[in-house]
Simulated assay, not measured.
Amino acid sequence: MMHCITSLLVIIFTLTKSSLAVQCNTNPCILGAGFSPPAYQCLQVPDNFNDVICTCPDGQSEINTPCRVCNKVNCGPNGVCIEKSFYESLFYACGCTNGSSIYIHPGPCPDANPTTPAPGICFNGGVYNTAAGICICQAGFSGPYCEISPGQTNCQNVVCANGGVCNSVATIENGVDQQCSCLDGFSGSNCELVGVSGRCTPDLCQNGGICEEKNNGVTSYAFCRCPSGIAGQCCQTPYFSCPAPGIFADSTNCKYGRYFQCAGLNLSTLSCPRGLRYNFMKMRCDSDVSCPI
Rank of each mutant, 00 (worst) to 15 (best):
G185S: 05
C262R: 07
L20E: 15
P227V: 08
C272L: 08
C200F: 09
S241V: 10
L193K: 05
C24D: 03
C122D: 05
G140P: 03
I148K: 15
I136N: 13
N113Q: 14
G175Y: 08
N266M: 08
P119W: 12
Q41E: 15
L90V: 11
F13Q: 10
K255F: 14
V194I: 15
Q23Y: 00
R274E: 07
G59R: 13
K84W: 09
L276R: 12
F280W: 06
I104R: 10
V158R: 13
G107C: 04
I247E: 08
T269G: 01
A139K: 11
C224Y: 06
V176L: 03
N74H: 11
G120T: 04
P37S: 12
T97R: 06
Q41F: 01
N253C: 01
Y40P: 06
V169D: 02
G229M: 01
C235H: 10
T26C: 00
E62L: 02
V127Q: 11
S18V: 14
I172T: 13
C29Q: 09
H105S: 12
I134W: 01
N78I: 06
K84C: 00
L267Q: 13
I136Q: 12
C160Y: 11
P28N: 06
N113D: 12
L43S: 02
E213P: 02
Q233M: 13
V73P: 07
P57M: 07
I5H: 14
T201E: 10
T252H: 12
P38L: 04
Y145L: 12
S61H: 14
G120L: 14
K72F: 09
G140H: 04
P202C: 05
I148W: 10
I121V: 14
K214H: 13
Y40S: 05
V45T: 08
Q179I: 14
A244G: 00
R199N: 15
I5V: 15
G195A: 09
N74D: 15
G229K: 03
L9G: 00
N98H: 03
C226F: 04
S18F: 14
C182N: 11
P108V: 01
I104D: 06
F35M: 04
M283W: 02
E88R: 07
K84L: 09
A244Y: 02
C155A: 04
G120Y: 06
V194M: 08
G185L: 07
N27Q: 06
E83A: 04
S197M: 07
T55L: 05
P202S: 15
C137N: 03
S251H: 11
G257Q: 08
L267G: 09
I30S: 12
S181C: 00
G275P: 04
V45R: 09
A170N: 15
Q178W: 00
A131Q: 15
C205Y: 04
T115R: 12
I148D: 13
N64V: 02
G188D: 03
A132W: 03
C200H: 08
Q152F: 11
S181M: 13
I172P: 02
V10A: 12
S268T: 15
N64P: 02
V73W: 07
S228F: 02
L31K: 12
G99M: 09
C29G: 08
P77V: 03
S189I: 11
C54N: 11
G229L: 01
L183P: 01
I293C: 05
C291H: 12
C160M: 08
V22R: 03
L9D: 00
S89R: 13
N154I: 08
I148P: 03
G246I: 10
C29E: 11
R284T: 13
C4N: 11
